[in-house]
């Protein structure tokens, strides 16, 4: 799922870098509050472990492609979401620098796609409530499969959005989604099963890791909701602004094609123009009717994000065991 520099435009790369930097700063501040230095070796070795695990590719049956695990959910289970997010960030930085896997400008996209959903969405909404204190292997296995599927689906969808908004590929939205989502569904199932088995194993062999993790201050849903909301607004608002406000690369190139290519018929020009229009509003339903402005798209983006967020939360609440007292307040 690593995106290369060549696949992102400066605007998309910069925006996502800012979002990820904000999340890193937030996680670091949360960690500084009750930082336990004895967790350092665990953080280091888990980072190294996930790094090594990402180097092992497994074939996906029937597609002819291969995938590797992301590790965000596993890290979150063992380290807690904030440390997990920082650990994954470091893994991605090292991969970008030394392995040419993902790029420097695309780092923000990669951190967000692979880290955010696993650590700040799948962990608190699915894994933690469903698996509880990780003592029941069946619950742990099911919860981690669900958490991995959700985080990979959302991450893969973000890859599609970021690539298309960057305007480097002519792949239609529908085809791109149809390619990415099923592949990452199968990766999610495999990763979820592996993650679940790993958690069960570590729980049996070194239960103190989880005791220390649980002894830390109980997870603040309010903070997660806040960060989720901000990120959703930033992406919904920011990216939809970019989607309609930054068509220059494509428009320019289309003009160039239409200009240098010998115009055989006006049909070709119309086709190109329609193409431009189609590309610049690749999610036409996301615009408010009767509004051609960038702000219209942006409002639609934000509203859409809020609705999506609400839906995700509703699913989370529906799956949450009733016996637990809910501390969530929206």
């Amino acid at each position: 799922m690593h995106m290369a520099d060549a696949l992102v435009s400066p605007a998309v790369g910069g925006a996502m870098l800012a979002v990820s930097a904000g999340l890193v700063a937030y996680s670091a501040r949360k960690m500084r509050k009750d930082f336990d230095p004895s967790r350092i070796p665990l953080m280091g070795i888990m980072g190294a472990f996930v790094f090594a695990a990402q180097m092992i590719n497994f074939a996906i049956p029937g597609t002819g492609s291969s995938g590797h695990i992301g590790g965000a959910v596993l890290l979150a289970a063992l380290l807690g979401p904030y440390a997990a997010f920082l650990a994954l960030t470091c893994v991605l930085v090292i991969q970008a620098l030394f392995f040419a896997d993902g790029g420097l400008l695309a780092l923000g996209c990669n951190i967000f796609n692979m880290g955010f959903f696993g650590c700040f969405l799948a962990y608190p909404i699915f894994l933690k409530p469903m698996a509880g204190n990780f003592s029941n292997p069946v619950k742990v296995l099911l919860a981690s499969i669900l958490a991995c599927i959700v985080s990979l689906q959302l991450g893969a969808f973000c890859v599609v959005l970021e690539t298309l908004v960057s305007g480097v590929t002519q792949l239609p939205f529908g085809a791109f989604v149809a390619l990415m989502q099923p592949i990452h569904l199968s990766i999610g199932v495999v990763e979820g099963a592996l993650t679940g088995l790993a958690i069960v194993f570590v729980y049996r062999a070194r239960p103190q890791i989880f005791l220390e993790c649980n002894a830390q201050k109980s997870f603040s849903y309010r903070a997660v909701l806040g960060s989720l909301l901000i990120a959703a607004l930033a992406i919904g608002g920011g990216l939809s602004l970019l989607a309609s406000g930054d068509p220059d690369g494509l428009e320019w190139s289309m003009e160039k094609v239409a200009g240098t290519a010998e115009l055989e018929s006006s049909g070709a020009v119309h086709g190109a123009a329609a193409d431009v229009q189609e590309k610049t509003s690749f999610l036409p339903d996301y615009s408010i009717p009767d509004s051609e402005s960038a702000a219209g798209t942006s409002v639609a983006g934000i509203v859409g994000s809020l609705i999506t967020l609400a839906a995700a939360l509703a699913v989370g609440f529906a799956l949450k065991p009733r016996t637990k007292r809910t501390r969530v307040c929206v």
């Binding site: 500084r32 280091g44 070795i45 190294a48 920082l86 650990a87 470091c90």
Partner: peptide, 18 residues
Amino acid sequence: PCILVLQFVMTWRYLEVL
């Protein structure tokens, strides 16, 4: 953040241990 830099160095060094 300091903690990120620490984690960065530790990940790399513990990779050798692993």
